Each structure stands twice: as structure tokens, then as C-alpha cells.
Amino acid sequence: ASPLSESIQQTTQAEDVVIYSKSWCPYCAKTKALFDDMAQPYTAIELDQRADGDELQAALLDLTQQRTVPNVFVKGQHIGGNDDSQQAARSGKLKALLEA
């Protein structure tokens, strides 16, 4: 695995919620609002504000098969994007993962 892939895995294992995001992305904002509404702290990594953002996004694609942001991980598990996160919240899956 590349150093970036290892960094992603370390970050997503260490933090309960990690959102790979872009600061201008409306779907990312919706996902962050979802966790804010749940009073659930998260780590947001803004790819557009990092020198290695493009490389990081490529490493995420390799790991998750997902090119788009937000790219959400809960307790080290890849959830997906905004639609997936909203769906997981509605179904109770998100709460169950966070409480596990």
C-alpha cells in the first residue's frame, strides 16, 4: 500500500468519523450537517486545501472504488457518500455503528 493509503487507514481507524471532503462541495456540507445534527464529532479532511489532495483522492479511489466526495468512514468502515450517509442515518445503521 502507498504511504497515502496507509495514512488513510490510520486516520480512519483512529477517529470515529472521518469525512474526506472539499470545502466548496454542497454534498460535503450536507454530510457535515448530518453529523452536526447528531452532535457527533468528526474529522473533516478538505482535499482542496491540501497540496496532496489529488493524490489523496486517487488513494481513496483505490481503497473505496469511490471517486466523489464526501467520502465517509465510520469506525474504520467505509460508508460512502452523502446519499449513503443520509440513508445510513435514516435506517439507524449509522447510530448502530457509532455505538458499536
Rank of each mutant, 00 (worst) to 15 (best):
A1F: 10
S2P: 01
S2L: 05
P3E: 02
P3Y: 02
L4Q: 05
L4A: 00
S5L: 01
S5E: 01
E6L: 01
E6Y: 02
S7M: 00
I8E: 00
Q9I: 05
Q10P: 01
Q10L: 08
Q10C: 07
Q10M: 08
T11M: 11
T11Y: 05
T12F: 04
Q13F: 13
A14Y: 14
E15F: 09
E15W: 09
V17R: 01
V17P: 12
V18T: 10
V18R: 01
V18W: 12
V18L: 01
Y20G: 00
S21L: 01
S21P: 05
S21V: 06
S21W: 05
K22A: 02
K22D: 04
K22C: 01
K22E: 03
K22L: 04
W24N: 11
W24H: 14
P26Q: 11
P26C: 09
P26Y: 09
P26H: 06
C28M: 11
C28P: 05
C28E: 02
A29R: 09
K30Q: 15
K30F: 10
K30S: 13
K32R: 13
K32T: 06
K32S: 14
A33R: 15
A33V: 13
L34G: 10
L34D: 11
L34T: 12
L34F: 12
D36L: 12
D37N: 12
M38Y: 07
M38S: 04
A39T: 12
Q40T: 11
Q40W: 00
Y42A: 03
T43F: 14
I45F: 05
D48W: 10
Q49Y: 13
R50F: 09
R50V: 06
R50A: 05
R50K: 13
D52H: 04
D52P: 00
G53N: 03
G53S: 05
G53P: 00
G53K: 08
D54R: 06
D54N: 10
D54T: 10
D54E: 12
E55Y: 01
E55V: 03
L56M: 11
Q57D: 12
Q57P: 13
A58M: 06
A59T: 01
A59P: 07
L60D: 03
D62H: 12
D62N: 11
L63C: 10
T64K: 06
T64P: 03
Q65T: 10
Q66W: 10
Q66G: 03
R67G: 04
R67F: 06
V69T: 01
V69Y: 00
V69S: 02
P70N: 07
P70D: 07
N71M: 08
V72G: 08
V72Q: 03
F73W: 14
F73P: 02
Q77L: 07
H78C: 13
H78K: 14
I79Y: 12
I79W: 02
G80I: 14
G80C: 06
G80R: 10
N82K: 09
N82I: 03
N82V: 04
D83V: 04
D84G: 09
D84S: 15
D84M: 12
D84N: 14
Q87E: 15
A89D: 07
A89R: 11
S91M: 13
S91F: 06
S91P: 15
G92W: 11
G92S: 09
G92A: 15
K93P: 13
K93S: 15
K93V: 10
K93L: 13
K93C: 13
L94S: 08
K95R: 15
A96C: 13
A96P: 11
L97P: 15
E99I: 15
E99K: 12
A100M: 13
